[in-house]
């Protein structure tokens, strides 16, 4: 098999895994199972990042999403007893209209996507993407980078204050 065919095969497998696990996040009846299939979808996204030549983002994805965010979600589920009922992941009365809105949005986005003449090139990706990314973060985007650390600090203080027993 050529490299292109292998890449396509990996893309198809990862895309199927991503769509399947995302659907089970939405449709599984127990919320703990939904949270665990969220891990599978985050892992599939990390695989797609590797296919897209973004190794650093793949590592960050596994560490932050599959590690930190899912553990946080599981703690919230366990602390709120929501998992003890057999149907802990119910839908509400807006199921029909929500489906219509989502499918309409998908239709619009798909139509725009295939109408737009992308100036895409499938030339070989640049080497050392991580090095370039680090240089960009500390030169062109250094102000946004510092602001992101401020946002994280505010979020941390806010989360502690909001969740604290008083």
């Amino acid at each position: 098999m050529t490299g292109d065919a292998l890449e396509t095969l990996a893309f198809v497998i990862l895309a199927a895994m991503l769509i399947g696990s995302a659907l089970s996040v939405v449709f599984l009846r127990k919320i703990v199972h939904a949270a665990l299939s969220l891990v599978a979808s985050f892992a599939a996204v990390a695989g797609l990042y590797i296919l897209l030549n973004a190794e650093f983002l793949a590592a960050v994805q596994v560490l932050i999403y599959a590690g930190a965010v899912v553990v946080l979600l599981l703690f919230a589920i366990m602390l709120t007893q929501g998992s003890q009922t057999p149907q802990s992941n119910p839908g509400n009365r807006q199921k029909g209209i929500a489906g219509v809105v989502s499918l309409a949005l998908l239709g619009v986005m798909g139509w725009v996507l295939f109408q737009t003449p992308w100036q895409a090139s499938s030339s070989a990706p640049p080497l050392n993407a991580t090095e370039t990314l680090g240089k960009l973060l500390f030169t062109d985007f250094v102000l946004a980078f510092e602001l992101a650390s401020l946002v994280l600090l505010v979020a941390m203080v806010g989360a502690i204050v909001i969740a604290r027993e008083d």
Binding site: V25, P90, G91, N92, I97, G99, V101, S102, L105
Partner: peptide, 21 residues
Amino acid sequence: LSAVLFCIGLYGALAKRNAVT
């Protein structure tokens, strides 16, 4: 693929009752 995933997430955010979901 990104559009499909976004719409699945949008459906879940609109149609689910559990705040954690």
